[in-house]
Design a protein around this nucleic acid. Structure first.
Lengths: 229, 229
DNA sequence: TGTACATCAGTGAACGCGCGTTCACTGATGTAC
DNA sequence: TGTACATCAGTGAACGCGCGTTCACTGATGTAC
């Protein structure tokens, strides 16, 4: 490895405070991991996300990932057992990034809070714009039955599901929604709608419906269904 | 490649003839297809769907498909250029099966028609129960950017989208819905909700929400959002 | 301040297996007379 | 009704390539004195 490359690695490691997140302290072969190694691991993850976007989940190759960061295939195995292992690590990142989304659901919405609902939908769309490839890959793997990816998906969905269900319950109690609806199913339906529609957005734009209108519509439906407003 | 080979490979399978449905009249190597061959082709498709369910899209192997019907790998190539080709054929089947679903949307719903909405949701769920593996595979491929599968998805979605959007428009005109909503985006949101929630159903059942309650909730949301009732 | 040794990090190059793919062939079915 | 020939349908067995995987090795960085 060239001197320049080593310098770059050192710079990139600046962004992560040493070993804070769920990052492992030892490599797959038992070596202890220093800052340089941590930076390499990060670069491999970033490359994986990049190629996920470029090639799609079906065509991501371990060899391509390492080539993308200018490393040997053997290096990959220092940090991950296989590509799924790297995808799981990336999934942890997006779980973490969903915390902000969850926080926007902390205070129950009322019929006066349509602005807050719009704000939430805006953040939700931005979240998918930023993490789309990883989220999609995670969901595909989950849908294919892989329990590890199912768990990652749950980690983001359940907190949101709980908050929304609580809001529905409150709205029903306040007489703004019929009491014979199922709060959890309603919340799940809203999350399903949000999650699925993001992948339809381009198709809709082609059909003459702007992204703005789609977002506004989502917010409206969510607002009405959850608050009864 | 021999001259003969070059000639033959010019006539790809697909739609180059008049079978009963969308079935080709000639095989990939130019032979004309009789009833026996058509049956073999069907058995290969059924096996593909079966293994799709058992192994998942990532792990479907051409060799396994042919073994499942007791045939040689070479037989597969008589009828399909590759697995994707077979998946596209299966996708045509589910497009065809969606006609009944579309017909249930032919007459615009009014606030008196909640029963019809429930009926539609029931059929929708049944449709996914029957064709889930193929629908999922088609959607995954579409989401991964394959234009051929995108087209198949559109073929089922667009008619439903049109019908629902028309209903929303009518409800708005009748003053039952706000006129500032976007009919197409609203219709798309409803379809997104339906499509996505089917894959969550098991998860919801584990969380104590019955399939019946989920179905009823979907129908309720759809009913209110589309008819304004 | 320089040298030696320990530890951390990365790699070249080969290996091998799983799986798609092919081709010359055999077997089955239909038809003419 | 039987025989010969044409056409339809299916296959065994091998081939080869793409890609994950491994291991003994080199190189980089830290530390003791």
């Amino acid at each position: 490895m060239s001197k320049q490359q080593a310098d770059e690695s050192a710079n990139e490691s600046a962004d992560s405070g040493a070993g804070e997140r769920g990052e492992p302290a030892i490599a797959t072969d038992g070596r202890t991991i220093g800052p340089r190694a941590r930076a390499t691991r990060r670069r491999l993850l970033d490359a994986t996300a990049r190629l996920l976007e470029r090639d799609g989940l079906f065509d991501v190759r371990l060899v391509d990932i390492t080539q993308d960061v200018g490393a040997s295939p053997a290096t990959f195995y220092q940090y991950f057992t296989d590509i799924d292992d790297a995808l799981l690590a990336l999934s942890d990142d997006v779980v973490e990034a969903s915390a902000e989304l969850v926080s926007l659901l902390a205070n129950a919405w009322t019929p006066d809070d349509e602005d807050q609902v719009r704000d939430f939908v805006g953040h939700y769309v931005a979240y998918w714009d930023e993490h789309g490839p990883v989220l999609r890959a995670r969901n595909l793997k989950a849908e294919e039955g892989d329990e590890r990816f199912r768990e990652k998906r749950r980690e983001t969905q359940v907190p949101m599901l709980r908050s929304l269900a609580a809001m529905v319950r409150a709205s029903a109690k306040a007489g703004r929604l019929s009491t014979d609806i199922d709060p959890v199913a309603t919340a799940a339906a809203m999350l399903a709608m949000l999650e699925r529609l993001v992948s339809y957005r381009q198709g809709l734009e082609l059909r003459g419906t702007s992204a703005k209108a789609t977002e506004a519509t989502l917010a409206r439906i969510l607002f009405q269904t959850v608050t009864g407003g």
